[in-house]
Write a protein that binds this DNA or RNA. Structure first.
Length: 542
DNA sequence: GCTTTGTGCCAC
DNA sequence: AAACGTGGCACAAAGC
C-alpha cells in the first residue's frame, strides 16, 4: 500500500501518481518532502489521497519518547536530520522589478534534488522504528496526520486565499490617505507625526519611528514613561498619548499589511501563504513570508469570496482546555465543557465566580501564570478539576527537572538548551542561584504548555485531514472547483465553497471535529463544538 | 556596508 | 514594566 517515489521516477511521476490514484484504496505515496513533489502534481490537476512525508516523520521519530529505545533514535545525525523545509512555491516577485531573487525556480521545477538521500532505506528504517516503539498505533496516527497536514498545506498554497486587492486598497486609503510616492509617509501618518511633535515641543526632525529619540522627547515633555509600549502609554494622562497610539496603530497597518505587502503577496486575486508544517516545536504550523498566521482582524475585509461562492469559517471553542480535559480524563472538566461554552460551564461547576475568571484561570493553568487573578483561582481550579491540573503540573515539574515531555500522540519536547547545564552548574552565589531558578521555572512553563498546545495541534491535524477528505467528496472536478480549505489558523479554518454547498460544508466540518476527537481520544465524553459562520467576507466571521 | 539585536505588536 | 505559552515581521540602533 506504501509506494515510494524515488528521484529516478521524477520524469514519469505524473503518470504514475495519476494512475495509482485510480486504485481503491489509493496508495500512500512515500516521498522525501511533500513540497518537492506535490505542488507540481497539483498544477497538473493531480490530487493525492494519502502520503507519508519522510522528512517530517523523521523529525518526529528522532525525538519521540516512544522511540527513545530504538536504534533509529540513537543513531548519529545524518542527512535526514539536516533537511530544511522546501517551500511550496517560488518566492514572491519583488514589487516594481518583476524578477525573482534567484534562479532556483527558473526551470519550473519545485526544488533542486537532494541526491544523498536514500528514500527506500529511510522508509524501511522508519517503519522498523515505529514497529519497535512503545506505541506503534499512536505513532502511526501521528505520522499519518502530520503527512496529511503537509498535503493540506501544499493545497492551501495551491488554491490560495481569495483576496480583493481593490478592497484592501480602499481600506488603506480610508485609514491612511491615498498611497504616497515611494519613501513618503501617507498623509494621515504625516499629520499625526506633526501633531505629536507639536504636543511634546519637538523639532520637525523628530522621527516618531525612532524609539530613543521619541522616548527622550516624551520625557522632556514630562510624560513619565520608560518605554513606548501601548500598555504603559495607556496608564499616563497626557494629550500626546491619543495621537501617539493612533500613529502606532496606523504605522503598524502600513508596514505590516500596507501597499507593499499587497504588491508582494497578492497575485491574481489570491494570497498564497507559505505554511511550514511542524514549524513550531509543539507541532503547530508556522508560516514564512506575508505573516499568514497574523492577518490582523481589520484587513480581513479584503478576504472576499468569488462570485457565486462563499466562505464557511469554523473555529473550535476553547480547544486547549478541552484537549486538556480529554488527555487527563478529567470527568468534571469534561462535564463543564458540555453545552458549548466551557468557561460558562466552569462557572456553573462552582469553581469560580465569573466567566472571565474561568478564562484567565484556565489560561494561567496552561501557561504557568504565577501572578494576579489567574494565580488566585488556581487552588479552586485544582480542587474542582484535580486530574486536569495535575497533568499540567506534572509536565511543569518534568521540565524543571530537565526532562522530555510528550504530547498525546508522542511528539517529544526538545531538551533544554546547552546553557542549561552551565546555568545550573554556575549557581554559586545568590544572583546566579536566582538566575538558575528563573531559567528552570521558565523551562517548566514551556513543558507545561507543550503538552497541551502540542496535543491541540494534533487534534487540529486530525480535523484538517478529515475535513480535507470530506470536502473533496462534496464536489467534482479539480480541487479549486470543489469546496476546499482556503486558510488555517491553529484552531480555525476558512473553507471556500460554491454558495449552494455551504450547509453541507458546515455539517462536514462539525462531523470532522467529532471524528478528530474520537480518533485521538476514543469514546470519551469530551465534545469539540465549532462556531461556524457562512460569510461573504472573512471579517464578518466574528 | 552588512549583519545582528532590541523593541513592539499582530495572530493563536 | 512584566506578568504568562508558541510564533513572524518591520524598523532603528548597535555591532562587526
Amino acid at each position: 500500500m506504501n509506494r515510494v517515489l524515488t528521484e529516478s521516477m521524477r520524469p514519469e511521476v505524473l503518470a504514475v501518481v495519476r494512475d495509482g490514484e485510480r486504485d481503491a484504496p489509493a496508495p500512500r505515496w512515500t516521498w522525501d518532502d511533500t513540497n518537492r513533489w506535490y505542488p507540481r502534481l497539483l498544477n497538473e490537476g493531480v490530487r493525492v489521497e494519502r502520503a507519508h512525508d519522510l522528512r517530517l516523520a523523521h523529525a518526529i521519530l528522532r525525538r519521540s519518547p516512544l522511540t527513545a529505545r530504538t536504534p533509529f533514535a540513537s543513531a548519529p545525525p545524518g542527512p535526514w536530520d539536516a533537511l530544511e523545509p522546501t517551500p511550496a512555491g517560488p518566492p514572491p516577485l519583488v514589487p516594481g522589478i518583476g524578477t525573482r531573487p534567484d534562479g532556483l525556480f527558473d526551470l519550473g521545477e519545485v526544488a533542486a534534488p537532494a541526491p544523498d538521500l536514500d528514500v527506500v532505506a529511510e522508509a524501511t528504517a522508519q517503519e522498523e522504528a515505529v514497529a519497535a516503539s512503545a506505541d506503534p498505533g499512536r505513532l502511526r496516527f501521528l505520522l499519518a496526520a502530520e503527512s496529511a497536514g503537509a498535503l493540506v498545506a501544499a493545497e492551501l498554497h495551491h488554491t490560495g486565499l481569495p483576496w480583493r486587492a481593490d478592497v484592501h486598497d480602499a481600506i488603506l486609503t480610508e485609514r491612511l490617505g491615498p498611497r504616497p510616492p515611494l519613501g513618503q509617509r501617507p498623509a494621515r501618518l504625516e499629520a499625526l507625526a506633526a501633531r505629536i511633535r507639536e504636543l511634546v515641543d519637538a523639532p520637525p526632525t523628530l522621527n516618531p519611528d525612532s524609539h530613543p529619540a521619541l522616548l527622550k522627547a516624551l520625557q522632556y515633555a514630562g510624560v513619565g514613561v520608560k518605554s513606548l509600549s501601548k500598555w504603559e502609554l495607556l496608564e499616563v494622562d497626557h494629550p500626546v498619548v491619543a495621537p501617539l497610539l493612533e500613529y502606532k496603530k496606523l504605522s503598524r497597518l502600513l508596514t505590516a499589511n500596507g501597499w507593499n505587502w499587497l504588491d508582494t503577496w497578492v497575485r491574481d486575486g489570491r494570497f498564497r501563504a507559505e505554511y511550514v508544517v511542524g514549524g513550531v516545536v509543539t507541532g503547530r504550523w508556522s508560516s514564512v513570508g506575508g505573516g499568514a498566521l497574523q492577518l490582523p482582524k481589520d484587513v480581513r475585509r479584503a478576504v472576499v469570496a468569488d462570485p457565486g461562492w462563499t466562505f464557511v469559517v469554523a473555529d473550535v471553542a476553547q480547544l486547549e482546555p478541552r484537549v486538556l480535559a480529554a488527555m487527563s480524563g478529567d470527568e468534571a472538566m469534561a462535564a463543564a465543557g458540555r453545552g458549548g461554552d466551557m468557561y460558562a460551564g466552569i462557572v456553573a461547576s462552582g469553581a469560580v465566580a465569573t466567566r472571565d475568571l474561568a478564562k484567565v484561570g484556565m489560561l494561567g493553568a496552561m501557561y504557568g501564570g504565577t501572578t494576579g487573578a489567574s494565580a488566585q483561582v488556581m487552588p479552586r481550579l485544582a480542587r474542582t478539576f484535580p486530574r486536569a491540573i495535575a497533568l499540567v503540573e506534572e509536565a511543569a515539574r518534568a521540565g524543571e527537572r530537565g526532562e522530555v515531555v510528550s504530547t498525546w500522540l508522542g511528539r517529544g519536547s526538545p531538551l533544554p538548551g546547552s546553557d542549561w547545564d552551565r546555568v545550573q552548574a554556575g549557581a554559586y552565589d545568590a544572583d546566579d542561584g536566582a538566575r538558575a531558578r528563573s531559567y528552570t521555572r521558565s523551562f517548566g512553563r514551556f513543558t507545561r504548555n507543550f503538552v497541551v498546545q502540542g496535543t491541540a495541534a494534533e487534534w487540529a491535524l486530525a480535523w484538517l485531514a478529515s475535513a480535507r477528505r470530506r470536502l473533496w467528496e462534496l464536489g467534482e472536478g479539480p480541487l479549486e472547483a470543489r469546496p476546499h480549505l482556503a486558510f488555517f489558523l491553529h484552531d480555525e479554518v476558512v473553507v471556500h465553497t460554491p454558495a449552494a454547498l455551504a450547509g453541507d460544508v458546515a455539517r462536514e466540518l462539525r462531523d470532522a471535529a467529532a471524528e478528530a476527537g474520537r480518533l485521538l481520544f476514543g469514546d470519551i465524553p469530551v465534545e469539540f463544538p465549532l462556531t461556524v459562520a457562512t460569510v461573504e467576507s472573512y471579517a464578518d466571521a466574528k
